[in-house]
Design a protein around this nucleic acid. Structure first.
Lengths: 201, 201
DNA sequence: GAGCGATGTTAGTCATCATTAACGTAATCG
DNA sequence: CGATTACGTTAATGATGACTAACATCGCTC
């Protein structure tokens, strides 16, 4: 009389604990910074204590690396999907906005860690994360370039970063507004901000 | 035959070293986070080594506290000046934008530390910094409320934070654009973003 | 039902680090 | 001059923290 519905892989709940740890670490890193969080803290947050983490990760830095690698590849994947789906440049921009806004609203901790802690990732992984981040930005720049052909790329890049700053402000205004109200606000502000870059220079 | 031109206070270069330390600490904290920087690092950055800092500050946390207290009071002071000077709400908004943009462009390290490290400031000072930050935000909200009377305050507050995010993106787009080009871009994007908040809801 | 792999536990170990102690030195001031 | 003050220096000291070792346990598979 065993429960067969939970389709267990060869090794039972394999991966749950791992995922749990990643989530807890993201929250803690976002709140106190990589060096402000101890292995003990992370373990404690998931109900195991300390060195248990080494059964799942080779070390603290590896944990961070996996976190950032995961975020940056998911972001890039979603961006590629948005860009390759058919539609006008305006449609594509809207799709990109949705990607970033959804991420910012649903995973504020990951977003925070993603743009603060790259410096603590050891070298092999760091390069790859940087590459993914760069590719993500370039998806945006490409679309913006279609909408504003007269705008030089450096300005487009700066504008893109400014927009990320705007959208990623969600951790700061946590609690001010419900997500359902935050989403249209961010979308409107970001759209307007982008539209404005044609009006200067 | 002494040099009298350098108007020395009772104690020679008093305060130079102190200021130098604060500046170095800001840069390091911005780059690696409070816990990622050692007292030795900060000392090294100004050419003295380690425990010399205790001649100027009571400890690492006190150093951070002074940094944040200084930033938040300067921001608030400038905001008050902008708000109390005569002019239309639009003029006042422009003045506020100039305050924040100038700060973001000229002191990116301080801006970065200012919105990341509050959690590491010990309690007496933390409350005061929070208070100053809140007051700063309220200056913005008050002006925005005049421009958008129909907009509920929580939305104004969220929009204000989003705009700070936009303007404070300068550390991320460092090098993309020269400050002379960055300033009008940020101003245009921020103005447009703010104008857009009336168009929803 | 013995062996094994996955997963934890607790008790080291070894660095790093904030902070303090003990001790110069040079300039200022009486 | 002689003392005090401002500033530094190099050794402790005491915590904390990442990581390792040695030792369970438990669910499976054979």
């Amino acid at each position: 009389m065993r429960d067969v519905t939970t389709a267990r892989t060869p090794t039972r709940n394999r991966g749950n604990r791992r995922t749990e740890i990643l989530a807890a670490a993201a929250t803690l890193f976002a709140a106190r910074g990589f060096h402000g969080v101890s292995i003990e803290d992370i373990g404690g947050a998931v109900g195991v204590s300390g060195p248990a983490l080494y059964r799942h990760f080779s070390g603290k830095e590896a944990l961070l690396a996996e976190l950032l690698l995961d975020v940056s590849s998911r972001l890039r994947e979603s961006a590629v999907a948005a860009v390759t789906s058919p539609g006008s440049p305006e449609d594509t921009l809207d799709a990109l906005l949705n990607v970033q806004i959804t991420f910012a609203l649903e995973q504020p901790a990951l977003i925070t860690v993603h743009d603060r802690e790259l410096g603590n990732v050891p070298e092999p992984a760091r390069r790859q994360i940087r590459r993914l981040q760069r590719l993500y930005v370039e998806e945006w720049v490409t679309v913006l370039a279609e909408l504003h052909p007269a705008c030089p790329p450096p300005r487009l890049r700066a504008a893109t970063h400014a927009m990320f700053g705007l959208l990623n402000s969600t951790p700061h205004s946590a609690g001010e507004l419900r997500p359902e109200a935050m989403r249209p606000l961010l979308r409107a502000m970001a759209r307007a901000a982008i539209a404005s870059i044609a009006t200067i220079g």
